[in-house]
Design a protein around this nucleic acid. Sequence first.
RNA 1: CGGGAAGUAGCUCAGCCUGGUAGAGCACUACGUUCGGGACGUAGGGGCCGGAGGUUCAAAUCCUCUCUUCCCGACCA
Length: 441
Amino acid sequence: MRRSQLFLPTLKETPSEAKIVSHRLMLRAGLVRQSAAGIYTWLPAGYRVLRKIEQIVREEQDRAGAQEVLMPTIQSAEVWRKSGRYDDYGKEMLRIVDRHDREMLFGPTAEEVITDIVANEINSYRDLPKNLYNIQWKFRDEVRPRFGVMRGREFLMKDNYSFDLDYESARHSYNKMFIAYLRTYARMGLQAIPMAADTGPIGGDLSHEFIILAETGESAVFCDKALLELPPPGDEVDYSADLQSTVETWSDHYAATDEMHDPEKCPIDADQLVTARGIEVGHIFYFGTKYSEPLGAVVQGPDGQQVTLEMGSYGIGVSRLVGAIIEASHDDAGIIWPEAVAPWLVGLINLKVGDAECDAACEKIYADLQAAGVEVIYDDRDVRAGGKFADMDLVGIPWQLTVGPRGVKDGKVEVKRRSADEKSEIALDALGAWIAERAAL
RNA sequence: CGGGAAGUAGCUCAGCCUGGUAGAGCACUACGUUCGGGACGUAGGGGCCGGAGGUUCAAAUCCUCUCUUCCCGACCA
């Protein structure tokens, strides 16, 4: 993408309404614009990041055997009455009346909708287990939206729902998601800590939150240092095998947020205890028959008996992750995107637009990058060098190639790695190999 | 939902106390000088001062109501 053509409105100054760093940088780097309290428009660069995160989530869900569906944003009040949550959910649920005076709502979650589908369509134990997910916009009318996209009212969430015949099987479904979540966050360059959690209003008796560490996180986190040293499950993970012991290697380590943490009773020695701050980016629950019972999700078992399905639900805040990653990865100059989620992997800076040699070199590099399938943003604007450097750092492009008259004369370009702030020179004729390396990322 | 703050140009803000023809910097347009880490000069464009009432000869400024946004706390992917 040529920067001159791109809609990427970066700001030198910080809009006054943004107080936390990720929100400020998202506005400054031209990722989003606010439309109303807790409601955002995603601009091209921000939307690219959002889609990349979404795609990683999708791939790991698919790998773990979940199947993607797409449920509506607008739901009927009817199923929510069956589960009893229409009245319980309170003002966080945005209620809507249609032209026929039917009560509708903008879905804050989808247990009711999916359970209703499963209740209607699945009648035999032979069709189990099932795990269905969707990545869809949710709306929760938060009293106080804040922190930009981290606590918006409208947010993109991956939510899925597992349906099993018995506890044993449901536990396996839960474990699969536990592993899939660890992998998902690791692929985004995040260190995620699973933490035993309160089940809250969703109910149930088995639940973990996934917290990523960031200095600016909203809650204090205490955990066993060993947890931070565990390698995330690799590509070899076999989701059909028993995962209990793998899950336990993670869940057996101490981890607690400040409201659960009691220094008096903490089982970890002080020198082994990590105190940090974190942001919740996922939450998984097992809750048995809480929804399947009232919504009639029942199948006939092998012995001919009717069995009420065992359910779990699993959520990842996709739009929240955009902010969370920035909280975890930035510096004074701007965002430092992990390569896997960067809007563009490579930034190409033409220091002297209009100079025949610079232009020619850049056009060649730009074409080569594109031909290799490397996502590149080419700053071909006729503006001063400082502005281009500042923009690339602000937007957080992981690899930056600088082409200027001085270097071109020597047949060299400068390579900068954003995350390390290290620069080196590379010969123009060695760029082919460098590009091939980027293409392999 | 309790407590607090703020709405003036795209952004950051001054002006308001003490009423009298709406300002600065950045951004934008044109021209010129510049040009390897957010240059400079000259000339421009851009505002129903959040909205509605009221007071007054006169309201960005004073009063009332209202809308919006932000912050702190309780609650949450």
